[in-house]
């Protein structure tokens, strides 16, 4: 019998702690598939965030360090400057990268650090129980925007790829989603491309991944996947925002 799909060897035989319908599990799997396919398991060092992705070391069969909330890009900078030959990437949520750690992400990008940021955008603070994120859409209800996000009160959802695309230090920026099979395939390609560019020394790369959080969105799993296409993508269009030839 032909094997068409198997669990990547680099994904440990551990149960994910993620909620039903969560996109993190898919993204975790994609990362390990890509690293395995690129044969980089001996080179990869992952910087895990504070937030839903913080237990990556329980799942990844590669070296992982935990970062304080928001500091992933700075920690990754420190590692990469010691070990320029390694594949160094940070895994950061929307609160991590677009709120508390904006400065670190922004300036790592601006310096053109040869690292990759995997930016998981699910529009909500998952781990702390569904509060507003910088990427929460207008009118979206969260536990800290009980009547929906009001721009006058809480500002606007932050578009990281668009903002970072203005920085001369960035080399590759793409926004993808993991809400349907075709999108997942695209997401995997984007991750692979970002990693390959780092291996080639092209400089800062970031893949933003729109990811469902049905539990905190108070939706069914399917509904959450559809909501990404129908609502989220309108504010966070998918596609390549920057690709500097290398």
């Amino acid at each position: 019998m032909k094997t068409v799909y198997a669990r990547p060897k680099l994904l440990k035989e551990a149960d994910f702690h993620y909620c039903p319908g969560c996109g993190h599990g898919i993204i975790n799997r994609l990362l390990m598939e890509v690293i395995e396919e690129m044969d980089l398991q001996g080179d990869a060092i992952c910087v895990a965030p504070a937030g839903c992705g913080m237990l990556l070391y329980n799942y990844f069969e590669i070296d992982v360090i935990e970062s304080a909330h928001g500091r992933g890009a700075a920690v990754a900078t420190g590692i990469k400057r010691v070990r320029p030959q390694n594949l160094v990437f940070s895994y950061q949520g929307d609160g991590d990268l677009a709120a508390i750690g904006t400065a670190e992400g922004f300036h790592a990008a601006n310096r053109g650090e040869n690292i990759t940021v995997i930016f998981v955008n699910n529009g909500v603070y998952g781990m702390t129980g569904g509060q507003m994120a910088p990427t929460t859409l207008l009118d979206q209800v969260t536990t800290t925007t009980p009547t929906g996000r009001d721009a006058g009160l809480a500002g606007h959802p932050v578009r990281i790829c668009e903002v970072f695309s203005q920085l001369d230090g960035t080399s590759y920026l793409e926004r993808v989603a993991v809400n349907r099979p075709a999108a997942v395939v695209k997401a995997k390609k984007a991750i692979k491309k970002a990693f390959q560019r780092q291996v080639d020394g092209a400089g800062f790369s970031l893949v933003e991944i729109l990811s469902p959080c049905p539990v905190n969105w108070k939706m069914g799993t399917l509904e959450a996947c559809e909501w990404i296409d129908e609502v989220m993508v309108a504010h966070f269009p998918l596609g390549v925002f920057k690709e500097v030839p290398c």
């Binding site: 060092i45 910087v47 360090i65 970062s67 304080a68 500091r71 700075a74 920690v75 990754a76 900078t77 420190g78 590692i79 990469k80 400057r81 010691v82 070990r83 390694n86 400065a103 670190e104 300036h107």
Partner: peptide, 14 residues
């Protein structure tokens, strides 16, 4: 803040 976290990363890398 960034400086001390770069230190943390560099230290973790040896």
């Amino acid at each position: 803040i960034a400086a001390i976290n770069m230190v943390l990363g560099a230290s973790a890398a040896g």
